[in-house]
Design a binder for these strands. Sequence first.
DNA 1: ATGAAAGCGCTAACAG
DNA 2: CTGTTAGCGCTTTCAT
Lengths: 365, 365
Amino acid sequence: MVNIREVARAAGVSTATVSRYFAGQTVRNHETISRTVADLGYLPSPLARSLKSGRHHAIGVIVPDIANPFFAGLVKGIEAEARSRGYEIILGNTDEDARHERALVASIAQRSDGLIIAPVLAETSSLFRLGDLDIPLVLVDRDVLPDASVDRVLVDNEAGAALAVDHLVSLGHERIGFISGPLDSTPGRGRYEGFLQALRQHGLDAGAEYGAEYIRVGDFREEGGYRAMTELLALPDRRRPTAVFGASNLLTLGALRALNDHGVSVPGQLSVIGFDDLSFAPLLNPPLTVIRRPEIEQGATAARLLFGRLGRDAGAEPLPGQRISLPVELVVRGSTAAPESAAPEPAAPDSSTLQPFDKLRELTS
Amino acid sequence: MVNIREVARAAGVSTATVSRYFAGQTVRNHETISRTVADLGYLPSPLARSLKSGRHHAIGVIVPDIANPFFAGLVKGIEAEARSRGYEIILGNTDEDARHERALVASIAQRSDGLIIAPVLAETSSLFRLGDLDIPLVLVDRDVLPDASVDRVLVDNEAGAALAVDHLVSLGHERIGFISGPLDSTPGRGRYEGFLQALRQHGLDAGAEYGAEYIRVGDFREEGGYRAMTELLALPDRRRPTAVFGASNLLTLGALRALNDHGVSVPGQLSVIGFDDLSFAPLLNPPLTVIRRPEIEQGATAARLLFGRLGRDAGAEPLPGQRISLPVELVVRGSTAAPESAAPEPAAPDSSTLQPFDKLRELTS
DNA sequence: ATGAAAGCGCTAACAG
DNA sequence: CTGTTAGCGCTTTCAT
């Protein structure tokens, strides 16, 4: 690797002049230097520059699972925004593991100028001390800290859940199952609260009894969705829900799989709506009705927030932590419809309808 | 940021001793140093270390589209493997743009010890000079270079395509459409060749005429799949294919969307098989039969190959470029079945069958 | 406009 | 085992 000294020597100037040349300052031997640089194929070492300047020109991005389409989209949005400013992306995948996350944050924070992180779902107590970081931080998707000095990009989970309930109620549903995410995470909690509140607003029972029957709380994984749906299907026939709201894409996918396996037709026997759109949601069986949130935009927004802080002088007065809430929208596709009882021809449940639920008991025992 | 000098002073030793302490060498004042480091919260600067050692402890990963599930899985596999060795991942997203790719390679190569790249699909001439890089390189998924000194991790595209054809032929199909990727890319070309060869092996016509009718060549994007499928559907009824093989996940998804839009039932009127599995393929309408290749494993393999090179002494004799081909497998789900004509009751095509194709002409005009 | 020189934080001879 | 010192490649005063 050719360095600045060799260039300086070959061009007959000092290293300082070559450095100034690269800084865009006017130098006498512009031409000579330019040619020498090209001849030697010289490139300034980013490492040495960083050591001198104290800036890495890189930002860290830490997500729970890059293979989850939501986070992949998030990263894509961040990458584009960072790249356009000449910044590198250092990627970390926590696998939804708090210990792992702590290690990643420690390691990546040392090599970047700022961090965007979608924190692991876990008790607050087990969380790394984000406040200890000495670089700017932007939290995405999940809000885990009371610390006022970090930015956050979230979506209006309450409004999203309410949108889902409104939609189902307007179709005539009254027994609505809810497959919830963990309540100690903001998305999980927010969608849960939004669900209950919307239910009450529609004058539907949302008491403890309702919760015990129709609400299943789990993690955000597909397996949890499968299990929750299976449990809901196991309810006595007359009390089983006519619609189900899945609190995340994976949860909903799991529920769909359970429905498939148990031969329950959607939306014929049961309507399904999910939180989070997916590129392939229109191709699902049936096309999935969802609450959509803009994942790429969420990433881009987080990046812009971060660069806003990075651009400020070190001496400037500290910005208070911003909290940006992105809007969600209802996308109606084929998986939601009026409940059977509300159909024009209220066909008495025949054996083919009942069978899946009977079969179910064996499966869940 | 506290540095090594402050630690040395506080502990009453020289910086060299502190450095040795961190290198795991035996030092007299182990205890004192350990305590001082903890008190001051000292962490060695990776930047300074790298400048000194010449190693970044980071590898670059460049993919065409991180939001594509295949590449997301690939990155996940690489990340896990790198992380377990204490290496950082620097991520680049080319958006399938050769110019963009060149810039990314130039930028990322300067900040990492090795590169794993799934190259953009483009004419060879427009490719960056990978040979010019002075760090190890592993090519994944797509093979673009004659250069013998780089490693490659690919899958057996020919065998995969043959697997798909075998499956369709065994079901009784004889007019098989093929939605191909670009022929100037190895995956595109390989699957194309495999398709044709398998056809011939089954004694089916695979001449120029066949190609003109049943083979549609495009890019690897969903939109291309949609268009190709639309064109295939526009063929005169008696000559239209009874099955279609999509050369990539996006291509197949696009084809499925076209089929949906035109009201063609799958596999009733047309069987569909795709290259690349997807986590949600079982949930598609209908569950998609695919040729599966292991994306996470492909990423992990690429990373292992790269670290194999990184671990070698600079002086060691250069390893020849390895070429690892990972196996593919057929996963039969619901989107493939015997053709209509082979069904027990060969129902004469009625208007409902014809309609979509008639409607089609308007749409494609 | 330019060069000499100091220094970012660390490691590795070298001499003890 | 330990301290002194040079130096990784660059930028930036400080003079000139």
